[in-house]
Structure formats: structure tokens, C-alpha cells
Simulated scan of single mutants.
Amino acid sequence: MLMPEFEVIDPRFTKYVMQNVHMETLYTGTRWAEGPVYFPAGKYLLWSDIPNNRVLRYDETDGVVSEFATGCGYHNGHTRDRQGRLVSCEHQGRRISRIEFDGSVSTLAAEYEGKRLNSPNDVVVKSDGSVWFTDPTYGIDSEYEGDSAESEIGASLVYRIDPESGAVKAVASDFVKPNGLAFSPDESRLYIADTGATHVENGPHHIRVFDVSADGALSGGEVFAECGAGLFDGFRLDLDGNIWTSAGDGVHCYTSEGDLIGKILTGEVVANVEFGGIKRNRLIICATTTLRAVYLNTQGC
């Protein structure tokens, strides 16, 4: 039998959920869990507790949670680059940073056209080494998740960092508050969430999809899916191209055609997810105060 946390909306969802598999709570005690990233070589997961200004580490070998970093600049989203280094979005530092192999921290991006970034939110690295990130104002809107400040850029944009020159280029400027982002398995499409409803009455609460050219230019940008429960935030794709996205009531699963086929209900607002485990078949869920996990019959791409 399927556990009650699984809501089947379309029969296609049953392919991905297994009988008698239940959701586990791995940790409790965060104020706003975000930015999960899994490191298979070490069998551990890092994630952010933004208001508490710390990054936590879950060790998959023994279930122990420890503080990876504190007073670290209010990290939000994380990813690994193609060399296995941690790439981070820092609200307080208003930058994209990277931890090098020797433990030092490098700045990948902190300005655009001579003006400070707002507060980078989520980040992904393409196979060519380019770094893509969103830059809404959530980290400078108050003192809760960073330092309150005015936006120098005056807009919330999506950026690409060139892998060769390090140049920062705006690739999308028509978002209210760009948030989570992820590539399709073949990297031909880029999905980006807009959570502008937090700042604009009846504002966007959807995911848009863009075609990606060889030189990094984006085209298209039509709405892929509207969130029917709160807001989409961070998300990941599996090998079949399904999107597993955060929402106000849990995790929603959409096909590559934009059909909502099922949900994983958490009882808490979910901010982000990550595929972890050696087989990449364990969905890690950042659900406000808790870190949770559930095994699925699919693998993250």
C-alpha cells in the first residue's frame, strides 16, 4: 500500500512511488531550511538554516547532524561544481562564493555593471562549467535573512558566469523575484521559478521554461506550471525529465509536459529538494523546521 504522504493525482505518478516506503525525518530544529546539496564521495548532505546563519551537515553513514559553518553570511542555495567544490549563494556577502580544495573561499560574482548584487538565491552549474544564479531581494528585504539594504541594481535578474572569463551576464530580466532554477537532463531547457507574489499583489507564483542556446542565450520563457498551493521555490529534475518542486503543502511532481501527477505531503512549507544517496534515488526535502527524506523509484539527473 502507498503511504498517506503520497497523493496520486495521475496514474503516471505510481511509477515513481513504491509500496510501504515512508518519509523519514532526519533532523528537526531549523527556522528556514534551504539549499540542500549532496556530496556522494563523502556520503553527506549540506543545507542552510538561513535565519540562524549556519550551514548544517547530515552524515548519511551514521545519521549525525553537525554544524558545517556558522556566521557564514546567511547562505541560501548551494550546488556542486563539476570538480566537486561547494558553490554557495550568500545573502549577507551578496555574492556567489566557492570553497576551494584547500579550504579557502573565492568570490565568483559580487557585482553586475559595477553595482552590488541583491542577495543571490539559488545556483546551478552547467556541464560546460558556466554558473547560473538568481538574484532576488529576499536577503536585503529585512534583517531576518541578511542585512537590510536598498537594491543597487533596482531589479531582480538571472545571471550566467562565463566559465572562461568569469564575466557576469544578465540572461533574464523580466522576472519579479526569480528563485529556484534547474536544467533539463539534456540541458536544452532551463526552468526558473518566479515567487513575485511575495512582493506584488496577485504576482507570479509559477515556473517558466526557456530554451538554452549553445552560447548561453535564453529564448521562450513561457509559463510551465502555476503553483496551486503557496509558491514554488527550489526544485530538481529526475532522469525522465520530471520536476520535483517545493510548494506550500509539500513536494509537487510535474511531467516534462507540465502535468501535475502527484504530491508528497509534508504538513510544512517546503523550500527546496535534492536527490541524494549513492544511487541518487533518495529525495531530500527541506521543510521549514525539518530535514526529511523519502526513497523514490527514479534517480536525480
Rank of each mutant, 00 (worst) to 15 (best):
F6T: 00
E7H: 14
E7K: 15
E7L: 13
V8Y: 13
V8K: 09
V8L: 09
I9V: 10
I9Y: 14
I9D: 01
D10M: 01
D10L: 00
D10F: 06
P11A: 06
R12F: 08
F13Q: 02
F13W: 12
K15I: 01
K15N: 12
Y16V: 02
Y16S: 00
Y16C: 00
V17F: 06
M18A: 15
M18Q: 14
M18P: 02
Q19P: 03
Q19F: 07
N20W: 08
N20S: 13
N20T: 06
N20E: 13
V21C: 04
V21T: 07
H22R: 14
H22Y: 11
M23I: 13
M23A: 10
M23C: 09
M23E: 09
M23T: 11
E24G: 05
E24V: 07
E24L: 14
E24I: 08
L26R: 12
L26W: 13
L26N: 08
T28W: 10
G29Q: 11
G29M: 14
G29E: 09
R31L: 15
W32R: 11
W32V: 08
A33H: 12
E34H: 06
G35E: 01
G35F: 07
G35V: 02
P36V: 02
P36F: 09
P36K: 07
V37L: 07
V37Q: 06
V37T: 12
Y38F: 15
Y38M: 05
Y38V: 03
F39L: 09
F39E: 03
P40C: 10
P40Q: 12
A41Q: 15
A41T: 13
G42L: 05
K43C: 07
K43H: 12
Y44S: 04
Y44D: 03
L45E: 00
L46H: 06
L46Q: 04
W47T: 00
W47I: 03
S48G: 04
S48A: 15
S48C: 07
D49P: 02
D49Y: 08
D49F: 10
I50V: 02
I50C: 00
P51R: 05
P51Q: 01
P51S: 01
P51T: 01
P51D: 00
N52R: 12
